[in-house]
Design a protein around this nucleic acid. Structure first.
Lengths: 298, 298
DNA sequence: ACATTTACCTGACTAAAGTCAGATAAATGA
DNA sequence: TCATTTATCTGACTTTAGTCAGGTAAATGT
């Protein structure tokens, strides 16, 4: 039974894929490539109004560095962009659009708008609203399904970025603010194998969430540093992080997981309760903790 | 107000576009191009298990004939396909996949399935169902919005195909069948300018519906041959055809439109009524007509 | 029967997109 | 300080994806 309906779902997705790529293929290739090679338009678009470094562009577009270098040179000779060594690191090139580069970007943008609009032109009001609503839903869920969670070095750039934002959020949400020096010494070593781990959630390569596991006592783990970026909330990522951390705990033969939280983090409390954590007595001296939870794994 | 909400819709569509092309781009290019140029996989896929003629392939893929010829030769030398002059017309080449070509096709198919499945893997049951439902909705409405309606030569291949299917459907749905020779002589000349016109609706180039307008008397037109392919119904195409024909009638300075229909065509009757046509007395001697309608244009 | 059209093929060419092996200079780690 | 790493550049290639101008043979219109 299950496999039949799964097969049906796959068929629906492939039908969606066919129709959508046909329609959007026209949108992207035909209208963005206005007398200029497609990758060049794409690059112009990716540099954007705020500029970017060559390094970022190379990563985002998955481009060979030689190829990118030449493309940037082409944009320069056509007076669409300028590059100069970045202030912090003279190796990296900061790329900005020139005045005429910005004008081109605006043209591309206007064409994209027009094309998007053309998808609505022949639909009536009801159909338009249904299409827009369904597209938003697909986009939301596709973002959710594109998120990848991988164990990561807590000292790496992405992990540090997530932890930084995690602390900043605590500071913003706790009534009296949050002072990182109180309560927590640097516990990064706790989050590395074999004592624990840190998961980083990424959407199209960008870090958007994290969660950590450490060992409290033999067989007993603690969940810490659960954070999901505000613009990725409502996708069920907290639950996924939690369940992957539980999986990691099981692999380490832990039988019990504990965690603490603050009363101002309502969604978190809600998540822990619905994931089977039950409230217990204070088990640590974290001055910011107001609730303590435990769950037996199996 | 209107422009604000339209701007919002466009933004939603462009967000959808970005997310979806990122996700599906991987699906198509990375997984279909398995050690083989992308167009070649695409061609293999398009030939399909049942084979195709070079003419069809050229049309469907919008390919230069020289380019296609070379690609087919490449598939032949790698023993993935065979070509032979078609039986009916020795000019056209019939292309079929060989045993190993079919095996490759199955591999491509399996990879596509796997990729589609991967979009569901990290979602829970509720999210999966919502995603599949929203994708179906987007696909349906995107198909609707991709349909183009153009005035066409009634003697052309697409128009004749539509009329053929129209008559076949009447024959299937009328209780006593439908005999084309009764009631209608060849009225094709009626559907050409300046006396009338024939609209053909196409989805990605394929004819999927038609509708005709002819002159009954000065200032009075008649709608005829309204047909929408069964697999394109429920997209509001009947209504769009009708309204475009009314537009054409207005251009010809017609003030009144008439049409007739048979009681077994319930959706059609429903459409005419909701589009402002009111039932009138018999105005012709069409033996298959049971209802007659009229609408005043302005 | 004969001009025209249609379907395909061939050769010659081009642009786009990318790959790869070094080279160079700035930053970083030990 | 010095070896290593990182970010970018350059030159020399290749592959992919075409385009275009004829040419041939079969089918079709008159």
């Amino acid at each position: 039974m299950k496999s039949t309906s799964a097969q049906h779902d796959v068929g629906r997705i492939r039908a969606f894929n066919r129709t959508v790529t046909r329609r959007l293929g026209v949108l992207n290739e035909k209208y963005l490539g206005r007398d200029r090679p497609y990758v060049e338009s794409r690059l112009l678009f990716e540099i954007g109004a705020h500029g970017a470094t060559a390094r970022e562009l190379r990563q985002r577009l998955g481009m060979d560095s030689g190829f990118l270098s030449r493309l940037l040179r082409a944009l320069e000779t056509r007076d669409l962009a300028t590059t100069q060594p970045s202030a912090e690191d003279a190796r990296v090139k900061a790329v900005r659009l020139t005045r005429s580069g910005l004008a081109e970007l605006r043209k591309i943008d206007a064409l994209s708008d027009k094309l998007a609009q053309s998808m609505l032109d022949s639909l009536d009001e009801t159909q338009t609203q249904r299409l827009v609503a369904a597209m938003s839903e697909v986009e939301r869920l596709l973002r959710a399904s594109s998120v990848e969670m991988t164990p990561d070095d807590p000292a790496g750039a992405d992990a540090r970025y997530c932890l930084e934002r995690y602390f900043a959020e605590l500071d913003a949400r706790f009534p009296g603010g949050f002072d990182r020096s109180r309560g927590h010494s640097s516990d990064l070593p706790d989050y590395t194998a074999p004592r624990g781990c840190l998961l980083v959630a990424r959407l199209f390569g960008e870090p958007i969430g994290c969660g950590a596991l450490r060992t409290l006592a033999p067989g007993v783990g603690e969940i810490k540093r659960m954070w999901v970026s505000p613009d990725a909330r409502g996708l069920g990522l907290g639950r996924r992080l939690l369940s992957e951390l539980e999986q990691a705990a099981r692999k380490r033969r832990m039988h019990t997981l504990r965690l603490d939280s603050n009363g101002s983090l309502a969604e978190a409390l809600q998540l822990y309760r619905s994931a089977g954590y039950r409230e217990i007595e204070r088990f640590n001296d974290n001055p910011y903790a107001q609730h303590w939870f435990e769950k037996a794994l199996r």
